[in-house]
Design a protein around this nucleic acid. Structure first.
Lengths: 197, 197
DNA sequence: CGCGCTAAGCAAACATCTGTGCTTACGATG
DNA sequence: CATCGTAAGCACAGATGTTTGCTTAGCGCG
């Protein structure tokens, strides 16, 4: 009764494995009591064999980067509200909601952790960040197409994006009410020639 | 003359060890080709035995936290310039200069890396951040004592501190000229109603 | 229906990291 | 100058992380 069932092994499809591993990363990063993030732990929580993780992703950095890009694309369905202010506000509200959840903060942390000190670190980081900022660029482009005059990207980074990152990293909750409006109004009020169309 | 000199071991003083290890952390974090940060590597580069590191600090997180606080205190001799604007500008200029160097960016990265997902992570992060923000608080206190009316801490975080962190993390160099002034003027110009100044 | 490809699972070797008992250099103290 | 406490260095053991060779489940294709 005991011994021989060596071929009873079940296996999940590559997509299932991928999703389970991604979720395990987020769980470990957000939920539990400070367990440190490593591949054996991730594989265990995902219920897959750790060799599958090693062979598919090769390193923790690569896995984190893959997870982050997948999740960010999946969770960025933001779209045209008809005005620059509306678009920025929608972005800010989504960000505020996101960093109130442990999972949202974990994603931001993962963005940072996934960037190693590689020789081309600077470049990779910049590139990664560009992709992350794609939605902001889209908002600017749409505004320009409408005839609006959006602030330069740098200013949006400084006044809108940066506060959310800072708060996500250090776990500082944004003010309970009106925070997205506050940041957006500050941003648009000081453009110099903000004039919504 | 080869073999027997088992007692030829030389040793360095605790302070030397401490300084060497701290420096090794910064070096590994900033300089080289993406080697990952771990205690054996740090000890090797510092030229000390790894057991010394384990015994003194116990964990990489603790070592990073110790290094960060030591360095930040050492490198924050900022002081009273006589006005709120002057103090903020001095802080901003020092920050801008710092994040232009690999070592400065490494310090910021270390601040973030040294914060584990511990159960009380949220609290610890907030506390750590408070200490990091001590100089900002001082600036506010001095301003109040002078009769000036400084912006609330949250606003200084959003408009002055956050941009520097974002840029340090992602390796985005600040504009070559006038950046500290830009941020400080924006901050002080919008203290009340957005239409002011 | 059989073939072959891809990738998951398994086990075991291999490498690296972490921790411990001990010795001993160095500095302080009297 | 003798003694003592602290902490660095050494060697080795144990735990954990990483990699490899192999088998085999699932799936598309002829």
């Amino acid at each position: 009764m005991t011994s021989k069932q060596p071929t009873a092994r079940i296996r999940r499809s590559p997509e299932e494995v991928r999703a389970a591993v991604h979720q395990a990363v987020v769980d470990l990063l957000s939920d539990p009591a400070g367990e440190d993030l490593n591949i054996p732990a991730i594989a265990h929580r995902a219920g897959v064999n750790h060799t599958s993780v090693y062979r598919r992703w090769g390193s923790l950095d690569a896995l984190l980067a893959d997870m982050v890009t997948t999740r960010l694309e999946r969770d960025s369905p933001l779209n045209d509200t008809g005005s620059l202010r509306g678009d920025l506000l929608a972005w800010a509200k989504a960000s505020a909601a996101s960093i109130r959840t442990a999972e949202g903060r974990a994603l931001v942390r993962a963005v940072i952790l996934s960037m190693p000190n590689s020789p081309q670190a600077q470049d990779e980081r910049a590139q990664h960040f560009r992709r992350r900022m794609h939605s902001i660029e889209q908002i600017r482009l749409r505004a320009t197409a409408r005839g609006e005059n959006p602030p330069p990207l740098e200013q949006i980074l400084d006044q809108l994006v940066a506060p959310f990152y800072l708060r996500a990293i250090f776990g500082i909750d944004p003010p309970a009410t009106g925070y997205p409006e506050l940041l957006v109004d500050r941003l648009l009020g000081t453009t110099g020639a903000p004039g919504t169309a």
